[in-house]
Amino acid sequence: MTVLLFAAARQAVGSDCLSIQVPAPVTASTALNAIATTCPELRPLLPSCRLVVNHQYVDASTPIPADAELALIPPVSGG
């Protein structure tokens, strides 16, 4: 699955997306674990990040469909 990256997360990885392998059934929690395993450089940021599935914030236990658009959202700072 592909995870879109923004701001500090994008900068830490040096790319605007990341490919992760997650065994089914995928939840937000297992996806976040896979992100930490794939990209150790993101680990310090992950506790303050939220996961977004198809443009919506989700809880840790939310099931994620295989074709979903995933994004890692560091603390936002609009305004």
Binding site: A7, A8, V52, P74, S77, G78, G79
Partner: peptide, 27 residues
Amino acid sequence: IMDQLKNRVPIWKQEQFSDGSRQWIHP
């Protein structure tokens, strides 16, 4: 509305200071 915007709308600002340094703002 402004509190909600600053909490949940996925927009980020990077501050660029007069000494040339840059920083992502984390509220």
